[in-house]
Design a protein around this nucleic acid. Structure first.
Lengths: 235, 235
DNA sequence: AAGATATTCAATCAAGCGTTTGATTGAGTC
DNA sequence: GACTCAATCAAACGCTTGATTGAATATCTT
């Protein structure tokens, strides 16, 4: 990064190490989890003094929140923009594929903080502590609610219960994909690569859209009835 | 736990604290992750001396492996047994619902180590470190491979690529469900409860079976073609 | 009963942790 | 050129960590 000429030179000095610490923290947190990395390791990676993290962010938790906040709003905003685009289409009902992609793409492609931030998010979602849950709720509950509403509009026949469970599947898949390397990468001998956002999105979006579109299947079936199901593709 | 009369009384003493330490470790690891808990906290929870964990398991990592190993083989074994049951059905092709349930149920129901071990597994899968990945590979790669084969047999028209990706979705959903509390529990105002194994299985098994059954959807579609898809339920 | 073995215990170790401190730097202001 | 103030630095703080020790105690074997 070259210094911006319009920026006061004084601001630049502190801001630079601030960003370097955020970058290092994002990288190391995403690789080893928030409890698996010390502030010393982070500041060393950033080439800063060991007290710099506390100076700029108050505490380790403050640093974690700062890493999260840096790109989270950008993702939530882009999600909402893309969702608006879905609704702006001609006069037809919005497309499931488009909605699903609008939800997944901003967080999985590299625009907001690169793949490093995607992995960081996956790790934080996976850690699932009180703090990370609170962070997610604060930054994403609004946009997530909008997507649930949009999906319910597009699928009026689907029960709220099933809608939420299918959304749960989408979330779990997203988290598991972000926190690569996943197990299929090994099990498929490298054919499937969840760390490649393009492949992941192109493959997952149609599958998950179709998942939402599937008719509700009654859970309790006798073995005899089940035999007939294999040939049924839908409804 | 009352002492078993058939058991030598001498074995019981050490074995008892051993089990209490395993229980405490499973609980605390599942709640705070492997790096979020100290051996002192674990031995205190177990009502044992702080040196007991190192005495019985050598190291913290040894304890983690022991917690994992205690029930992992039981799950893998039950999975394979249930998979055999699928193949033993009359002369028809095996049922997807049955295969999916055979994969999910042993790990999600409480038989093997209770819900505590399920959450522990979810947390370990989520942590996704070199050690936990190695543990999973060691204990589950075989049975997982068998399920991939069985699914491929049941779905001969599905490409290996798509099969693995859908399996990835199932794995991600399982992990995300095990590592509750999930986000839909809040977003659905408590209607969806991933921590209830019965509800989770009854809801997820049909959805995921249908997911596997869905026809392959081409990823690249123009907006115009996409409009027609919403009404298509399948093939 | 006596000796061998397995287990528990309090105490201790070096290392690392997050955080705080007081001094120092260097650019901007008057 | 004196003053201000955000930023950096080396050093240390008190505390927790995983691990080890050697003595004490319980249990099993003979």
């Amino acid at each position: 990064m070259t210094a911006l000429p319009l920026e006061k030179a004084g601001e630049a000095r502190g801001e630079l190490t601030r960003q370097r610490i955020l970058d290092a923290a994002q990288k190391l947190f995403s690789e080893h989890g928030s409890n698996g990395v010390s502030l010393r390791a982070i500041t060393a990676e950033a080439g800063a003094n060991s007290a710099a993290a506390n100076y700029h962010f108050g505490s380790k938790m403050g640093l974690l929140e700062a890493v999260f906040a840096r790109h989270a709003t950008g993702i939530a905003d882009e999600r909402e923009t893309l969702l608006q685009d879905c609704r702006a289409e001609p006069g037809r009902p919005p497309l499931l594929e488009q909605i699903v992609r609008a939800f997944l793409e901003p967080g999985m492609r590299g625009q907001h903080g690169g793949n490093g931030f995607a992995r960081f998010r996956g790790r934080m979602l996976a850690e699932n502590t009180e703090q990370t849950r609170e962070l997610y709720a604060r930054y994403f509950n609004d946009s997530t609610g909008q997507f649930l509403d949009a999906l319910q509009d597009a699928l009026p026949d689907l029960s709220s219960h099933d809608l939420h469970w299918r959304f749960h599947i989408m979330l779990g898949t997203m988290v598991y994909t972000l926190a690569n390397p996943g197990r299929i990468q090994i099990l498929s001998n490298g054919d499937c690569d969840p760390s490649d956002p393009g492949q992941a999105l192109d493959t997952l979006v149609p599958m998950i859209a179709q998942l939402f579109r599937n008719p509700t299947m009654s859970p309790a079936r006798t073995s005899e009835t089940l035999h007939d199901i294999n040939s049924i593709q839908a409804k």
